[in-house]
Nucleic acid binder design. Structure first.
Lengths: 195, 195
DNA sequence: ACCTGAACACCGTTCAAGT
DNA sequence: ACCTGAACACCGTTCAAGT
């Protein structure tokens, strides 16, 4: 049959979409590809690495932040798109969180945030701190929101986290405000950019 | 042998401490208690519920925030203690994150934050938003930090997240600054408390 | 109330061997 | 290069039955 690495990732992402992370086993992926489980180990050293590739693909597919003229809007656009990409698949946030401390998968959002913040006048260290803080908030919130969403969908609990989407923006605004005050103190030579 | 629910939780927490979350299986807990695996289902309906109890115990043991006179310091004390409690056990953050969207386990930190923020003059909704935002940041950061720490301990990667502890305080300061600006706009009738 | 015995339907991973 | 066959050492969970 001669499957490539990408076929395996695509297949795994399809299984994630249909059955969730709990049912995403090496044996199920192999069965879906009509192959013995051991064949997968020709393409990936272990399951962790395979899941890492699935997380990367998930973000590559869903992470497309809208361009923005102003830095605050740019930061919000990155965070929103990062969140939307994870929400597009069941257990998407858990997958991204699980995989190697999301060091690899979230590279693009991280780099984009650092670029936006640097353009806004933050120095390298302040931009790095602000970027990781924003991503930690987004991941934490999305993890929480998605498990609550899925619990509600399974009919478990009425609603504990409640009002999911609006609260994300409210919390994000809080962190952005904090970054804004860091900007005020860090920006000295460079004025805020418009373009 | 007549074990109680609490014995099972204590045993599970000991196994977590020694071997990590990956080796915390129902069968291993049962073996440690010198009991058949099925006996555990007399005390807990499933593994998820057992892990929830372990997370609760972990936080009950490690979460003891220092009292503070000023609200910013009070917020920092809660967040630090929440983080320290999770860092005290291998995979502590992952456990807390996994368990029911940390809706139950993090009740005490959440309530404490809301109380501190309400005393600082935030209205109910602003306090709720700020509290969840802070906890999401802390969980996201600690999750990231702990997996990086453990990867480094296992000799996998030199260091990608780097400078773990100081960055936590820097990011926390950022979010606290954001909460501060929310406080400025929300506080109208009540002045900031000193006690 | 607390537990055993026995089973069911699964896991991730390794490794010699095939083409 | 890509895969099979077969095994190893595990999983969570159920359920009748024992005391």
């Amino acid at each position: 049959m001669a499957h490539r690495r990408d076929d395996v990732v695509a297949c795994a992402l399809g299984l994630l979409d249909r059955y969730g992370l709990g049912d995403l086993s090496m044996r199920r992926i192999a069965a879906e590809l009509d192959v013995r489980p051991s064949a997968l180990y020709h393409h990936f050293p272990d399951k962790q690495t395979l899941l890492g590739a699935v997380a990367d693909r998930l973000l590559a597919l869903g992470y497309h932040p809208a361009p923005a003229a102003e830095w605050r809007e740019g930061v919000r656009a990155v965070c929103r798109s990062f969140r939307d990409a994870m929400l597009a698949y069941p257990d998407g946030a858990e997958l991204v969180a699980t995989v190697r401390g999301f060091g690899l998968g979230a590279r693009a959002p991280y780099d984009d945030l650092v670029a936006v913040l640097a353009a806004a006048g933050l120095d390298d260290e302040a931009a790095a701190i602000a970027a990781t803080t924003l991503l930690h908030y987004v991941l934490g919130h999305t993890l929480h929101e998605q498990t609550a969403l899925q619990a509600a969908a399974a009919g478990a609990v009425p609603d504990t986290a409640s009002l999911p989407s609006s609260r994300f923006e409210d919390g994000l605004a809080l962190v952005v405000a904090g970054v804004g005050s860091a900007q005020s103190s860090s920006r000295s030579t460079v004025p805020p950019v418009r373009q």
